[in-house]
């Protein structure tokens, strides 16, 4: 474990806590894409199957359990508890265009041709694009609550922190995980546009609004 990865994981943890806090305090999931949240459940469940047969560390174990359970909890909040505040009519990204290509990529690129390894690859590819329905929704409505932008910023920072972690591990441990690294770079790049508006507007005290 190095500081870059720790900051990344803490940022990921923070993003989920911010999202749950936003939904609970405003009693609304307005502005949150259900499709993106459902994709994250798919990502975590397909990636963390190794919980059942591989022990890494106590830290690793609890983080995995937290990511699976919190993402399921968010789906419950959106579909049950605060269902009336969820508006599917603006959440229109076609996720089959993400699921299909990620499945094909996972069948081509993996470290071993086993069910769990292909699912692991699939989860890495899917995670890199899972935010697209959310960003698409933001683009469509052209605005977002400030708390929602903090959630997105923390989530974007998470994979961004992993990039220096991979460089550090390349120098200190002499290993490269090309599937994780390329997907991680794509994932971070998708946030650049959002980060630009976040830094120039939200952090200057203005509302998150996209130019018409």
């Amino acid at each position: 474990m190095n500081l870059f990865r720790l900051f990344g994981d803490m940022s990921h943890l923070a993003s989920i806590l911010i999202l749950v806090h936003k939904i609970q305090t405003t009693r609304s999931c307005r502005g949150i894409s259900f499709k993106t949240q459902a994709l994250y459940v798919t990502v975590f469940v397909s990636r963390y199957l190794d919980l059942f047969y591989d022990w890494v560390s106590l830290y690793n174990f609890f983080m995995k359990v937290f990511f699976i359970s919190s993402s399921c909890y968010i789906l419950y909040l959106m579909k049950m508890k605060f269902r009336p505040t969820n508006d599917p009519s603006i959440d229109t990204f076609r996720i089959e265009y993400l699921l299909g290509p990620c499945a094909i990529l996972a069948l081509i690129f993996h470290y071993k041709f086993t069910v769990t390894e292909v699912l692991w690859s699939f989860s890495i590819f899917l995670e890199s694009v899972a935010i697209l329905p959310q960003l698409f929704m933001l683009q469509r409505t052209g605005e977002a609550e400030t708390i929602t932008t903090h959630y997105l910023a923390a989530l974007g920072a998470y994979r961004a922190f992993y990039i220096p972690n991979w460089i550090y591990r390349y120098w200190t441990e002499d290993i490269v995980d090309p599937i994780a690294v390329t997907s991680g770079i794509v994932q971070t790049a998708l946030y650049l546009d959002f980060f630009y508006v976040y830094f120039t507007k939200v952090l200057q005290g203005q509302k998150f609004e996209l130019p018409a």
Binding site: M63, K112, R169, D174, V176
Partner: peptide, 10 residues
């Protein structure tokens, strides 16, 4: 550098 599936990352 050798490539590998790094299993300790989340």
């Amino acid at each position: 550098a050798p490539t590998a599936h790094v299993k300790d990352e989340l």
